[in-house]
């Protein structure tokens, strides 16, 4: 799985951090998402899929495979 974050679309809701804290973080000052791991290990995939599903800005794209 490859994770892509469309940062200009991010509205800093932090939902990705709640769903997959190992893969996403937020900048301290404005909360914009930070992608920590573009190729997360398979144990983290469910959390990453949830993050993509609940991102209110639809800013997370997953390339499965």
């Amino acid at each position: 799985m490859r994770v892509e974050l469309d940062e200009p679309k991010c509205v800093a809701s932090g939902q990705c951090v709640m769903a997959a804290p190992e893969v996403f973080d937020q900048r301290d000052d404005d909360g914009v998402a930070i992608l920590l791991d573009e190729h997360p290990v398979s144990e983290l995939h469910d959390g990453v899929r949830e993050a993509a599903a609940i991102c209110p800005a639809a800013a997370i794209r997953l390339v499965e495979g």
């Binding site: 679309k9 800093a12 951090v17 709640m18 937020q26 301290d28 404005d30 909360g31 914009v32």
Partner: peptide
């Protein structure tokens, strides 16, 4: 709407960052 909304929202998001 974006992009003005994105700018404004980023100025008020700080206190609501998950870890904070």
């Amino acid at each position: 709407d974006a992009p003005e909304h994105t700018r404004l929202r980023r100025t008020v998001n700080g206190p609501f960052v998950v870890k904070r």
